[in-house]
Amino acid sequence: MREIVLDTETTGFEPFEGDRIVEIGAVELHNHMPTGRTYHQYINPQRAMPKEAFEVHGLGDDFLRDKPLFKDIARAFLDFVQDAKLVIHNASFDMKFLNAELGWCDLPQLPMSQALDTLAIARKRFPGSPASLDALCRRFNIDNSAREKHGALLDSEILAEVYLELAGGRQPDLVLSSNQSQQKIETTTEWRPTARPSPLKPRLTDEERAAHAEFIGKLGSANLWG
């Protein structure tokens, strides 16, 4: 099963009010294990970075000015993603921006059914508790000390760890396969005890036998051994 843990950074909150994507980061998982393949791209938003966005991302106009436009990287991004499940924290936000950018490029959009929202999973699993990425890192003892600024690739790597914890931990090798379990069950049910080749020697002494017989004789009618 192929999954892509994904994060975007943007200039603001609304693509149809002029905000654009400035960074995409993604980590590939196969059967809930990182493959080592990643996708990372800075993007020229063709607009000035608002002060608030600069403070959050640390990406300034000078840094982004020579980066490619989204239309220049859109096809490579879709080739990387393909039809894999997209694991995103607050998926509706990132999908809104990705599909707006893809639409402006006249490229196929990503269906919401392809996205898996870890924010919704966390809120369902821990109702009433903080469900931000930082809060989940604290809950699962995941080191996010390098997260001084929001960065798409770093956040997607951290989210991959959080997602694997939400999915039940990262120890698939400790789970027995059904064939192994069935084999153990069958081995147990087929086992039968066998008689000893030679009986054990009695451990009672003659004195102990005599004392036991005397004790039984004294019981009289209360003798249950008859």
Rank of each mutant, 00 (worst) to 15 (best):
D19M: 00
A222E: 08
E28M: 07
F140Y: 15
A120P: 00
H32N: 15
E157K: 09
L119D: 00
E157P: 01
A100T: 01
F126A: 05
R196P: 12
Q183T: 14
R75S: 14
Q109Y: 00
E186M: 07
R192Y: 10
V81E: 07
I185N: 06
V5W: 07
H40Y: 12
Y163S: 12
A213V: 02
E165D: 14
K67E: 15
R125M: 10
A76R: 15
S198N: 12
A195D: 09
K71M: 08
H57P: 00
F93K: 09
E165Y: 10
G168H: 12
A122D: 01
M33E: 11
L6Q: 03
T35E: 13
S132D: 02
D61C: 01
G25Y: 02
A152S: 09
F97W: 09
I43Y: 06
I88M: 07
M1A: 06
P15I: 02
Y39Q: 03
I121W: 05
S129V: 01
E157F: 00
A26T: 08
N31I: 03
S129M: 10
G103N: 13
H40K: 03
E28Y: 06
N223S: 02
T35Y: 12
P197R: 14
I121R: 01
L29S: 05
G169Q: 10
S178Q: 13
L110I: 15
L200G: 09
P199A: 13
L154I: 12
G220F: 12
S113R: 14
I88D: 05
P108S: 12
H89F: 08
S92D: 14
F54V: 13
E9D: 04
A152L: 04
W225S: 15
P45R: 06
F97D: 07
A131I: 03
H40P: 00
D79S: 10
H32G: 11
D155L: 04
N179I: 08
T189V: 15
I88Q: 07
Q41N: 07
G226M: 06
T187N: 11
G217Q: 15
K71P: 00
P50G: 11
T205C: 03
T205H: 04
